[in-house]
């Protein structure tokens, strides 16, 4: 009898501990947000929030902390990255899920997942060695000669630019988008495909009218996830985006200075100026809120879809 009590006791104790850990997971997000907010409060009390978020005056020594240019830089670089990554990822996922013979698929999928495992710093190195010269010597001269208007005009001839960062980020986030999309596409029922084929559709017509229509909410979710992943990338962007202070980016070829790069760059100096560290943690908080919001929307869609299927 004593043995049984011991066994039940173990079961109960482990159960309680697990409940605690489960609750910790639920509250960790609030804890992170709260911790960042607590440290960012001093600067929020000193300055009005719209000045902090929308002004581009960033002069820590004079007590001016406008994150506007950095937020714009983040969105600009991420937008470029997504514009490149989405068509590539959708087409690749379609190929893997619909057209590719399954032995080939078994080799391609791990290959693409390997791409996701490479260190961000290594992407940065690759960007500096390959993409920076590509942009500086080929893309920039070509576009400024043939398309001298809005997103292509710039005075920055270094090759370290928003476009460079966007290309590197696109390569970094496409594995994530591809594997999510491929999984969703693969789960579309065969019955539905067969109906379309039986009605005389070609394979592409079937993919276009059945698979794509069925996965479009999932596709939106995958793109949002890719967007938020690109938004938070730090080291690779820091190495190739140029990161010059101060202005809203006006061109693909202008330098950009996104929030994560700002946070990483000020490491070391931020404790020396009053309110500086609070402003940096405010930048982290902004990034946190943006990524959490995007992730909640995307995973909400995906969970909803999964439950609808089941």
């Amino acid at each position: 009898m004593a043995e049984l009590t011991l066994r039940l006791w173990k079961d109960q104790v482990s159960h309680r501990l697990m409940i605690l850990m489960g609750l910790m997971v639920l509250f960790l997000g609030f804890f992170i947000g709260g911790g960042l907010l607590a440290r960012a409060l001093p600067v929020l009390q000193h300055h009005h929030w719209d000045q902090l978020l929308f002004s581009s005056q960033w002069h820590p020594t004079q007590g001016q902390f406008g994150l506007g240019a950095f937020i714009a830089g983040t969105l600009w670089v991420t937008f470029v990255a997504i514009l490149i990554a989405v068509p590539l990822s959708v087409l690749t996922a379609m190929f893997l899920s619909e057209y590719c013979p399954s032995p080939v698929r078994l080799w391609l999928k791990p290959g693409i997942e390997l791409l996701a495992g490479i260190s961000p710093v290594v992407y940065g190195v690759w960007g500096m060695l390959v993409i920076v010269p590509l942009v500086r010597d080929y893309l920039m001269p070509f576009f400024s000669e043939h398309f001298p208007f809005f997103p292509f005009v710039s005075e920055n001839y270094t090759g370290f630019s928003a476009l460079t960062a966007g290309i590197v980020l696109a390569v970094m986030v496409s594995p994530l988008i591809i594997s999510l999309l491929e999984e969703i596409m693969h789960s579309v029922s065969f019955g539905m495909r067969e109906v379309a084929l039986a009605l005389g559709a070609t394979k592409w017509q079937m993919v276009k009218t059945v698979v794509l229509r069925k996965v479009s909410p999932g596709m939106v979710a995958a793109i949002i996830l890719g967007f938020s992943r690109a938004m938070g990338e730090t080291m690779a962007v820091l190495m190739v985006a140029g990161c010059a202070m101060g202005i809203f980016p006006h061109s693909l070829f202008d330098t950009a200075y996104p929030l994560p790069a700002l946070i990483a760059n000020t490491y070391g100096e931020m404790m020396s100026v009053p309110l500086y560290d609070a402003a940096i943690l405010l930048a982290a908080l902004v990034l946190f809120i943006l990524t959490v919001a995007f992730n909640m929307i995307a995973w909400g869609i995906l969970l909803y879809l999964e439950n609808r299927e089941a």
Binding site: G29, P260, I263, T291, A298
Partner: peptide
């Protein structure tokens, strides 16, 4: 959602 939080934010936290 936690998985989607960027590593720099974890660093700041």
């Amino acid at each position: 959602v936690l998985w989607g939080i960027p590593s720099i934010v974890y660093g700041a936290f």
